[in-house]
């Protein structure tokens, strides 16, 4: 399949369509469907083959009247009580199937490994464009801190089409921040940060959940994720800058605001 070569030359291949591209949701969908298709195919073939053999060689079945000499030979050589165990032969067939399944599995994984590199790759030339938002989990909710120091509880607002990097941590126990529809997920570990990047392609309101059991309120530990038109986001963001709830360091806040607006303005 599309193997090592494609893995090495990940970026150029995107255009050729071998490796899935686009938002994480697109990448996920494409890989998932390929896996589902192949997985179903392999599963159905193997299980049908199992049932076929189980039926064909059932005791007292058609085989009883078989005149195939080889089969009769096999019938004569049944295991007996107390014999030392030996193998039943048929090694070649076993290895063929094994080799085939190995090829399928390894090529699938090699292919997805290319996408992993794509997903994990830091967008070097667009480094400035990344909007970094700090996500803090707590029992039982989420706090989002923007580059200007604005902190909002329970609602994450991001501009459409811009790459967002979530820097996720926790104030108390192990949580996991996930926005299922946008295919974003990151562990929230106390005393440590993890990151997740995504680029929302459509405006709308999504839900974020906690994906690690964290206590009594786990089921209800959700947040609203609002993907806004870049202009709307811009207006909203300016507003938070001027009415910043946590003006701990005004100069930093201002400079990051400037950066942020520049990046939004220079959006593709």
């Amino acid at each position: 399949m599309h193997t090592v070569g494609s893995v090495v030359a990940v970026v150029p291949l995107h255009g050729e369509g071998i490796l899935p591209t686009g938002t994480r949701a697109d990448v996920f969908r494409e890989i998932f469907w390929v896996f589902l298709l192949l997985g179903t195919l392999v599963g159905v073939v193997v299980i049908v083959y199992m049932f076929y053999n189980a039926y064909k060689y059932r005791d007292g079945g058609a085989r009883a009247g078989a005149v195939d000499g080889r089969e009769r030979g096999a019938a004569d050589d049944r295991p007996t009580l107390g014999e030392l165990p030996t193998g039943g032969g048929g090694g070649r067939k076993l290895f063929l199937s094994f080799a085939l399944s190995t090829v399928i599995v390894i090529s699938l994984i090699a292919w997805t490994y290319g996408t992993l590199l794509y997903v994990e790759a830091a967008p070097t030339e667009q480094e400035d464009d990344v909007l970094e938002i700090r996500v803090e989990a707590y029992q039982f909710g989420w706090a989002f801190t923007y580059p200007n120091g604005h902190t909002a509880d329970g609602t994450l607002r991001v501009p459409q089409g811009e790459t967002v990097e979530l820097v996720v941590t926790s104030r108390d126990v192990f949580h996991n921040f996930g926005i299922p529809e946008l295919r974003v997920k990151a562990d929230a570990i106390p005393g440590q940060t993890t990151t997740a990047r995504f680029t929302p392609s459509e405006t709308g309101t999504y839900q974020a959940n906690c994906y690690e059991l964290c206590g009594a309120g786990h089921s209800y530990m959700t947040a609203e994720v609002v993907v806004m038109e870049p202009d709307d986001y811009e207006r909203w963001y300016e507003n938070t800058a001027s009415n910043s709830e946590t003006p701990s360091n005004a100069t930093t806040a201002n400079s990051t605001t400037a950066n942020a607006s520049a990046s939004v303005g220079g959006d593709r």
Binding site: A54, G90, F98, S101
Partner: peptide, 30 residues
Amino acid sequence: FMATTIGISLPFDLMVFALIYTMIKGRIRF
């Protein structure tokens, strides 16, 4: 760890096929 994980799934393929092929030419009693 992705490599070791995939690696560990392959021996199971062999075991599954071995069990399936054992049925061939058998006198299977359900």
